[in-house]
Every structure is written in structure tokens, then in C-alpha cells.
């Protein structure tokens, strides 16, 4: 009897264990994988996230005026597995701890995270290329002027230029 009273007293002091949500606050664990956030500045358009996405939520398509690439992450198909976040080399795509996903049917196809990756023309031939992000250069270590010069070129011009420079060095 006394132990029972003790439990009653403890529970009275502790108060209800029900959270006040949706009328009040609730908690979010630190490692929660919520809605994705996309940083177009850091993206290098490698397409790894699109390739590994289990739910097919990520689409990278070329813009109509060829000035860049459109990135669309459809939250309604994202299974919050975290693969894109894991494989992203520049941490451009990240999970937030925002889990408030309920929305009405009319917003279904607009419920997406969008980004626009700008392309720049190659310094030699003028072909549109995705510029290397600052995050990528930081990972590569010290980037000399030579590397920065090479980065402004498209793939083919870079190959050609490297071969010429290598040959000149050996002469």
C-alpha cells in the first residue's frame, strides 16, 4: 500500500508525460534526418546524389536556356535514408532536423526543395561548365594558380593544356 502511494505521489509531482505538441513544444533528436536542404553554391553537379537516391527524389536537369542546371528534391519521394548526404563530396546536400512534412494535397507537386546551379563558359572554347566549388578546392588542399587556371577550362581543353604543359616542361 505504501509503495503504491509513493508511485502516486511521484507521478503527481512529475506531472503528465504527454508533450503539448501541436499546441506547444516538442523535442528533436540531434541526429534526426529531416527534410533535405540544398546549397547550390557548393554543388558541383556530379550527379552522385541522383544516382544513389533510393526513392528517386532527386532530379538534375539542364535549364532550357542552357545557363545552368535545375536541381529538384521532391520531399514526397524522399525516404530520408541519408545516402545523398553521405556521398555528397562537398556537403552541398544536407538533412535538416525539420520534420514538419504534413501538407495539403494541392501542394503535393510543389512540395520540393529547388536549386539552380549556374554554369560558366570555358575560358578556352566557351563550352558551358560547372565551376569547381570552394568546398571542393579546400578538400584538395593548396590550390596553386596553375590549378585555378586549369579549373576554368572544360574537360577537353584541360586535357590538351595539361599535355602541352607537360611536354614543354620535359623539353
Amino acid at each position: 500500500m505504501s509503495s503504491f502511494l509513493k508511485i502516486i505521489l511521484q507521478n503527481l509531482i512529475k506531472g503528465p508525460s504527454t508533450e503539448k505538441y501541436p499546441f506547444g513544444d516538442t523535442f528533436e533528436p540531434a541526429g534526426l534526418r529531416g527534410k533535405l536542404r540544398f546549397n547550390a553554391e557548393a554543388c558541383i553537379a556530379c550527379g552522385t546524389c541522383e544516382h544513389v537516391c533510393a526513392g528517386g527524389a532527386i532530379r538534375i536537369t539542364e535549364a532550357e536556356d542552357c545557363s545552368g542546371l535545375n536541381m529538384v528534391i521532391w520531399h514526397n519521394s524522399c525516404c530520408y535514408c541519408g545516402l545523398c548526404q553521405f556521398f555528397c563530396p562537398t556537403k552541398a546536400i544536407r538533412h535538416t532536423i525539420d520534420y514538419h512534412t504534413a501538407h495539403k494535397q494541392e501542394d503535393k507537386f510543389n512540395y520540393a526543395e529547388r536549386g539552380f546551379i549556374k554554369t560558366v563558359p570555358c575560358s578556352r572554347c566557351g563550352k558551358q561548365i560547372v565551376p569547381a566549388a570552394q568546398e571542393l578546392l579546400e578538400q584538395a588542399g593548396n590550390s596553386s594558380d596553375e590549378i585555378k587556371d586549369l579549373l576554368s577550362m572544360c574537360e577537353k581543353c584541360r586535357q590538351k593544356e595539361t599535355v602541352i604543359r607537360g611536354a614543354l616542361r620535359n623539353v
Binding site: Y21, P22, T26, G55, H75, N76, S77, C78, C79, Y80, C81, Y99, H100, T101, A102, H103, K104, Q105, K108, Y111
Partner: peptide
């Protein structure tokens, strides 16, 4: 369909959100 609650699975709080939206409708 009136309300969508995406997630795999959604958190219980998100489901409560969805039910609250459905209640309004």
C-alpha cells in the same frame, strides 16, 4: 486524398500535424 504526410516513416509528431490538418478540413 486531402492531406499528405511524407516520411519513411514520418515522426509521430508529423502524423499528429497531418491529423490536425485533416480535422480542419
Amino acid at each position: 486524398v486531402d492531406v499528405n504526410v511524407p516520411g519513411c516513416p514520418p515522426r509521430p509528431q508529423a502524423i499528429i500535424d497531418g491529423i490536425a490538418k485533416a480535422l480542419e478540413i
